[in-house]
Design a protein around this nucleic acid. Structure first.
Length: 419
RNA sequence: GCGGUCGUGGCGAAGUGGCUAACGCAUCGGAUUGUGGCUCCGACAUUCGAGGGUUCAAUUCCCUUCGAUCGCCCCA
């Protein structure tokens, strides 16, 4: 048996990769307009970073990390998400010393050890942004708007934005007790998952599909927000309204990472089987301090590129195809073939995409290749043409043929293609 | 970590305890001495994910394993 790719990973082959490049180009272009600048951080970090940043009790850290000892006996983990590494880089490189808010974006692979299914892989890719240094609710709204704009510009339809406030740590601790008190009488009747959630993360019970009947009248965190949290949350909503970003309040929205404070949000779309979340994020005001920096507030998001691609496909959204080949160069006979090597280079230096046959095949086979490459022009150089210092050029769409002088033929074709 | 379905040429797919393992697409060659897309003809799996077992005989039955896929948990 030959070696296969590890479970949950993918080879992105030509034909498919164009879609990725399209998404990545759109992301970069959007970030330019919103004035976010790219940052690239390692795909592996010290395990402790994720333990501290993402949270010891999260599923991600408890059971989904790719962790190993390196040869120096350090515990290393492949990054399961993007924020922790960016925060670390922000702190380590003292970006907080800059006068303005630091607005950063990244695109890259993340790793989680899970059973693959539709829209879930062990290596997956995220486009994410982080903004450090401001508690202004306008930044929360901007982050949400950037994600929403991204979906729109790549042609995704029916994306829902759900937002919630998870308050600050004090509010959350108090709310946790309210929830536990509420469910205490029915604790024994909850599903077995929710029984463990009761202690670990009681807010998640509200999200359970099985136990909805017990959730009737459950306290929501929004009801328990303090003045500061409430004001912030309201301001975020006002900003979204001002930007015409449609959103839905979801008082039961709870994210799986420990670091969120205040704003939490998710983007949802149908089309990936059982999964509907295609992106999410929120504010994390205590995180930078926990990672060891001077405490700067932050807010960010992460969007799943695989999931976006799946939804795009489900919606039948066409992604612009790769450009066809400009010229396919056919050389017939040894002398002419030799000459094509030179001509090919000239064509390419003129900025044209150009290809030839490398197997000395017959003209018929070469024409077929040209057709397969969707070549705009075929240039044929045979013994006759070579002797006369000419070359035959055929426009594939019309079948029309003409003879051009060999000298300056590359430039002439380039001019024709530009017209 | 748990559960369902699946695994036959480059791709899609039929099939059966013993026949030469259908067919379609793609590919290659020819009809057409230097011209693609259409048509016709021909070629193309000692082999049915891997390992083991049952049997005179296994692609087919059994076990194990790996993988794919979908779902649970959770999330992108």
């Amino acid at each position: 048996m030959s070696i296969q790719k590890p479970k949950g990973t993918q080879d992105l082959l030509p034909g498919e990769i164009e879609k990725w490049q399209y998404l990545e180009n759109k992301a970069r272009e959007l970030c330019r307009r919103f004035n976010y600048r790219e940052i690239r951080t390692p795909v592996f970090e010290h395990t402790e970073l994720f333990q501290r940043g993402v949270g010891e009790t999260t599923d991600i850290v408890e059971k989904e990390m790719y962790t190993f000892q390196d040869k120096g006996d350090r515990s290393i983990s492949l990054r399961p998400e993007g924020t922790a590494g960016v925060v670390r880089a922000y702190v380590e490189n003292k970006l907080y010393g800059e006068p303005d808010v630091s607005k950063l974006y990244y695109i890259g692979p993340m790793f989680r050890y899970e059973q693959p299914q539709a829209g879930r892989y062990r290596q997956f890719h995220q486009f994410g942004i982080e903004a450090f240094g401001s508690v202004d609710p306008g930044i929360d709204a901007e982050v949400i708007a950037l994600g929403y704009s991204f979906y729109r510009e790549i042609g995704l339809k029916d994306v829902t934005v759900e937002i919630n406030s998870v308050g600050n740590p004090a509010v959350r601790a108090a709310y946790r007790e309210h929830i536990q008190r509420f469910f205490a009488p029915v604790k024994d009747q909850l599903c077995k998952d929710c029984q463990s959630r009761y202690d670990r993360n009681p807010m998640r019970i509200l999200d359970c599909k099985i136990d909805q009947k017990f959730c009737e009248g459950a306290p929501t965190i929004v009801e328990h927000l303090d003045e500061e949290c409430r004001t912030h949350f309201q301001a975020v909503q006002d900003h979204l309204a001002a930007m015409d970003i449609p959103y839905r309040l979801n008082p039961r929205l709870v994210r799986g990472l420990d670091y969120y404070t205040h704003t939490a949000f998710e983007y949802k779309a149908a089309g990936i089987g059982a999964i509907d979340t295609i992106g999410g994020g929120g504010r994390y005001n205590g995180l930078v301090g926990q990672i060891g920096g001077n405490d700067q507030p932050g807010v960010g998001l992460g969007l799943g590129l695989e999931r976006i691609l799946l939804v795009l496909q489900a919606q039948g959204v066409e992604i612009p195809a790769a450009k066809p080949l400009d010229v396919y160069l056919i050389g017939l006979g040894e002398a002419a073939e030799k000459e094509t090597v030179k001509l090919l280079q000239q064509l390419r230096m003129q900025g044209l995409s150009a290809e030839r046959d490398y197997q000395s095949r017959k003209i018929k086979a070469q024409m077929k290749s040209a057709d397969r490459h969707r070549a705009t022009y075929v240039a044929i150089l045979g013994e006759d043409e070579l002797a006369k210092g000419e070359i035959t050029v055929k426009a594939m769409a019309t079948g029309e043929q003409e003879t051009l002088p060999l000298a300056g033929f590359a430039a002439a074709l380039a001019a024709r293609l530009r017209a």
